[in-house]
Design a protein around this nucleic acid. Structure first.
Lengths: 117, 117
DNA sequence: TTGATATATTCCCGTATGGGAATACAATAC
DNA sequence: GTATTGTATTCCCATACGGGAATATATCAA
């Protein structure tokens, strides 16, 4: 079996540095493909391909506007990574123990919030 | 240029599900290669190879004990992922805005702590 | 319609992968 | 010494990658 496809999950999609750059760019707002290509100094087909991967794993959303395709960030799709990495927060030193508590508190708040809906 | 090597950085090393499983296992304590292989139901050479990748990116430490090699987690090496993913925490909802503030506070504390050394 | 602009797709290639199988190396036990 | 256990390495393979280049598709403009 070869390496997992880049579109297999968010972890694989985000392993590529350029795709992380794209997400960082989109964090500052919706961009067209050419905007992305220009900002990252990559040619248009590469940008298009990277965006396709990001879209397949749900990290970006696309909407058409005339002949442009505007891509925007869907940061919620990063939560699996966040949740996973936070599993190890307790090993990062004393400060982070408190962070861990804080996160648990947050999760409880979220649950209460969700139940109220 | 092909895909980045799995040993290129922590993001690539962690993109492989089995390697994340290994880290999760090592989070509960030091293990020998055969322990890892047994817990993950993978044969020994694969376990050895995955551990090699994890060691190359600094995610695990190794020490010899007799004829065994005991591997342990070095969770600090996950910080690049943590820091990166936290860049997007502000997009995850209201609760996480406060988390972001808290993290900035933590970073300042770390700086002061480092300067005191 | 023709032309121009924006985006997506296809083909090629060198490279790296993860798993299987076999083997090599290392350290202990006898 | 030999045997045994624990670990690492090597070779093979099917698969997928990311970049380049060229081309196809889509949308607007005149």
């Amino acid at each position: 079996m070869p390496r997992s496809a880049t579109t297999a999950d968010v972890f694989n999609a985000v392993a590529e540095p350029r795709r992380r750059e794209i997400l960082g760019l989109l964090a500052r707002g919706e961009r067209s493909v050419n905007d992305v290509a220009g900002s990252l100094r990559v040619n248009q087909p590469q940008a298009s391909k990277h965006l396709k991967v990001l879209k397949e794993v749900g990290l970006v959303r696309m909407r058409g506007s005339g002949q442009q395709r505007l891509y925007s960030l869907n940061a919620a799709a990063l939560k699996p990574i966040h949740d996973w990495v936070m599993t190890f927060a307790q090993f990062w030193g004393e400060c982070y123990d408190r962070l861990d508590e804080y996160l648990q508190e947050l999760q409880e708040q979220e649950k209460r919030h969700a139940q109220q809906k």
